[in-house]
């Protein structure tokens, strides 16, 4: 699925915008990083990369952008024809039809040949009505909130719904029926973007889950969220009022946005550092993404974040980079001492 780290993001024409994060975690509907293709078009929906692009991407969990889905109406259950097939089949069909509907809509933007064309599409194109899809997923959850299909439906809804009432209900179902499962770890990231209900649940998981890996990953998520708060707050505070700021509010949710505006960044960073250090000490050996090229441990991941807080913050001397340019010529970042350097982590992909 798609997500985006910071902003309203449109597919970048040449520099693909993407964010990789915790590959095993499900992305929230509106979290994580990307770059606006054009700031002037904040009113446009964020068009996710096509599946094929994602496959070609270097990390399994690479996102280009977040779909700006219209808020789903809380389950009004526009009851369709009687359900056909097993629960798993019904869920699969729902997902497929949803993807088709969204892709048809996004294709209008993907196929636009110019900025003007895109703006024109934005004026005329109608986003698919997502309510019936959510109603179908909700029906699956109502029938049986406990089985594997219910879990998949929960995950899917977290990924696609930005409706706060909806996510509160999802959090309650997770807490009641899936709390003690090991796979609940896959929901940590979307939970972090699900308001206070989600974050309280993460905290409870970090203390009370019967699985060491879930407790560790939940604590790691707390630390990651604290760090993200620092970053988001800096961005939000530097933004002038306007559509860009409004979209930001949409992605982060009113509640988090309001909290970020008042955030004591220095304190939040200290808290995050302490949390990462705790994860490293208590859960350092917990493995992540086992059997994938991204296999690592919570210790390594925490170490990277601790390094970032201690060495890569504003005011610190940039760590040395020694490497080769694309022609194979060795050089160092410090070769450019005396000049202002804009260091850009980028790629075409």
């Amino acid at each position: 699925m798609q997500k985006s780290l910071l902003l309203l993001a449109l597919l970048c024409a040449s520099t693909a915008c993407r964010s990789t994060d915790e590959p095993a975690a499900s992305p929230p509907a509106g979290a994580h990083s990307a770059e606006p293709k054009a700031q002037a078009v904040a009113a446009l929906p964020i068009v996710p990369a096509k599946k094929a692009d994602e496959k070609a991407a270097p990390k399994e969990d690479v996102y280009l952008a977040v779909p700006a889905l219209p808020a789903a109406k809380p389950a009004e259950e526009p009851k369709a024809a009687a359900p056909v097939g097993t629960r798993a089949e019904r869920f699969e069909a729902l997902q497929k039809e949803f993807d088709e509907a969204m892709n048809a809509y996004y294709d209008l933007f993907r196929n636009a040949k110019s900025e003007a064309e895109m703006q024109a599409v934005a004026k005329t194109a109608k986003a698919p009505d997502t309510a019936p899809f959510f109603a179908r997923a909700n029906a699956l959850l109502d029938e049986d909130p406990t089985d594997a299909t219910a879990f998949s439906a929960l995950q899917w809804m977290f990924d696609n719904s930005r409706d706060e009432k909806q996510t509160e209900r999802l959090c309650a179902i997770v807490e009641k029926h899936h709390f003690a499962k090991a796979e609940v770890a896959e929901l940590l990231r979307p939970l972090a973007y699900s308001g206070s209900a989600g974050n309280q649940l993460i905290e409870r998981l970090s203390k009370e889950s019967p699985h060491e890996a879930v407790r560790g990953r939940a604590l790691f998520q707390c630390a990651t969220s604290a760090m993200e708060d620092v970053r988001f707050a800096a961005e939000v505070k530097s933004m002038a009022d306007g559509p860009e700021k409004d979209s930001y509010k949409g992605y982060l949710g009113e509640e988090r946005f309001a909290r970020l505006m008042l955030l004591d960044a220095a304190q939040a960073e200290k808290d995050a550092l302490a949390l990462f250090q705790r994860v490293q000490k208590e859960y350092g050996s917990v493995k992540l993404h086992v059997g994938t090229p991204y296999e690592s441990t919570l210790g390594e991941q925490s170490g990277a974040n601790i390094f970032e807080i201690e060495n890569l913050a504003v005011g610190k001397t940039a760590p040395e980079i020694e490497g080769e340019d694309v022609a194979g010529v060795a050089f160092k970042l410090s070769d450019y001492r005396g000049k202002v350097v804009m260091l850009d982590f980028w790629g075409f992909w």
């Binding site: 915008c17 940039a318 350097v341």
Partner: peptide
């Protein structure tokens, strides 16, 4: 973990 990431030095 996010691209592009920018630093101003």
């Amino acid at each position: 973990h996010g691209w592009p990431t920018l630093y101003f030095i």
